[in-house]
Design a protein around this nucleic acid. Structure first.
Lengths: 339, 339
DNA sequence: ATGAAAGCGCTAACAT
DNA sequence: ATGTTAGCGCTTTCAT
């Protein structure tokens, strides 16, 4: 068990004051290069390791940033996290990542834990069923930067980072229409989440623009869990108008839908064309491969990180509730091929 | 900005000593129920929040556990993390999760960061190309519990949590043989990683047991990255004996392989049968659906958490280098269907 | 059962 | 350029 060595040990050995040691280690300007070098050398030699708790206690700053995401296991989320991690690490921050597992209760718990851990900032992508936002008010009250990513909610003094889901939804739908679809279905998650309600708005706008009628049978709200695929199939079967195009706001669910529709004897894309959302790796793997909307989680992560860091550095702040919008892109594959 | 209230504030208000407040808050036995109740009530009323840094500094314990995984975006990893998180949270610990992105350099950095953050324990699933293990020795020297998960390495005073990859590999291969395959190919990742070398050993044993000859053309070492699928296809094409069964040690790569083999005109499972590993959700989605070996990341996470916690509580320890082995299960789907 | 006080290791304001 | 020292908020030993 290597005994831990402190700045006092260093000070004693080098015959300087603890203050000088501390300043040297932190590259303080008013220390001579010579002593700085001596201190650093000795510190390395002895395997000195700064005690973050003492430092944090003294500085009242933790240098950690909290993140709450619905789940870790999507390509989008994990690349986003990689992006965030890269930026904040380079800026000397650590990340505490937690998953809400799509549950508001868990999200509340996570928020509380992160608050108790005194994170310097919080990044959140909301859970499926989050309907109240009180668990974020402590952060706002304590002026801890709060940034929502992708699945956002407009809270005062917080920032949001999104794509133009409405436009993307419009484009996906327009693509189906271009390919000859007349009776469209939108399958999305909770309308409470902007990502789903906005994509739906885009869907509806596209229908209106192309003079296609819309009624309640053209939308299905689902939890997008693979176990709920039966509901979707039933909805499609029961529909009076023969559905020939489906916009699913989530690639994984879209992939399951394809698989199951084929099993039911439908031809994709001949009978029904399908477009997903996210450009998840699975969209390339299903047969037929899935058309989708692509947007970069990594880029979103990088931007989120940068945004938060510059806020923490006092360069900008979220007072003037700001929103960053990233670009997206339609990717055409087999599942929407015209005959 | 809500001012932070400390035990001193509480002490002054309640006219007791800070020590009493501290003990009350920590449910120390030698404090009367009455004062305990008073203190706790006041603390809640005033929204007291313990300063972890002061506590940690004083206790020399951080109550955080570090985790390094190769990537976050696999179903296996994220469910494993969910399992770990559940257990350690219940025990009052926090998790710092980091991803090595399959790079040893990043893994080293992560280890260093976590060490500097004074995690109380470290859980690791090794990166693809990790070949030296010196970055873990600081943990061992400082007697910080070190537990390897799934992708393990035998280091003194550390524990490992695995499945019987050799047996699982044997069973997967045996299944292919049962289904009539004669010329088998094993596609795995770096032999440096136990998960791949052990599965390969099982493969080889099965061949030997069934008197099927083995030479170097029966094994392909790949980075299992979808972009490397071309190599695999070439290997299969160039093989002198016509390959009729493939055991791929990774579902995602297996799925890509299926897709590409079909594109090349092969019939799956008629011409070539394929079995994967992990029971990733994609194995159900690909056409034909993929036979595979299932094992529970969640369970592995739970066990890892419990193991580390009980170590931390001094109940057991890793001195007697222990290994926990979980069960696994063969899942038969379309990709290995006999004609 | 409670109080007093000495740390834990570092930072930063204030000397010099 | 360097030293001194008072915190940061909590835990815990030693008294009482």
């Amino acid at each position: 068990m290597g005994k831990k060595i402190t700045i006092y040990d260093l000070a004693k050995i080098l015959k300087v004051s603890p203050g000088t040691v501390s300043r040297s280690l932190n590259d303080h300007p008013s220390i001579s290069q010579k002593t700085k070098a001596r201190v650093v050398a000795k510190a390395n030699e002895l395997g000195y390791k700064t005690n973050k708790f003492a430092a944090n206690l003294s500085k009242q700053k933790t240098n950690t940033i909290g993140v709450i995401v619905p789940r870790l296991n999507s390509n989008f989320m994990s690349t986003m996290l990689a992006g965030i991690e890269k930026v904040v690490n380079e800026a000397g921050y650590n990340l505490i990542i937690s998953q809400s597992l799509e549950s508001m209760e868990k999200e509340k718990l996570n928020a509380k834990t992160l608050f108790n851990n005194s994170v310097d900032a919080l990044l959140v992508s909301l859970a499926y069923d989050t309907s109240s936002y009180d668990h974020f008010t402590p952060f706002i009250h304590h002026e801890i930067p709060l940034l929502f990513l992708d699945r956002v909610h407009n809270l005062p003094n917080s920032a949001t980072l999104i794509i133009d889901n409405k436009l993307a939804g419009y484009e996906a739908t327009e693509h189906l229409i271009d390919q000859g679809c007349k009776n469209l279905l939108y399958v999305g998650g909770s309308q409470r989440r902007n990502v789903y309600s906005d994509r739906f708005k885009g869907f509806k706008n596209a229908l209106a623009n192309y003079n296609l009628e819309f009624d309640e049978s053209n939308i299905l709200e689902s939890d997008l869990n693979p176990t709920s695929i039966g509901e979707a199939i039933n909805h499609i079967k029961r529909s009076t108008k023969q559905i020939d195009g489906i916009f699913v706001a989530n690639d994984t669910f879209a992939a399951h839908l394809i698989k199951n529709l084929i099993r039911e004897g439908h031809k994709i894309p001949e009978d029904i064309k399908i477009i997903g959302f996210n450009n998840d790796p699975v969209s390339e793997l299903v047969t037929p491969s899935l058309s989708t909307i692509d947007y970069s989680g990594y880029e979103m992560g990088i931007l989120a990180g940068q945004s938060v860091i510059s806020h923490l550095n006092g360069n900008i702040n979220f007072k003037s509730a700001n929103t960053i919008t990233l670009r997206h892109q339609l990717i055409i594959r087999e599942s929407t091929q015209k005959q």
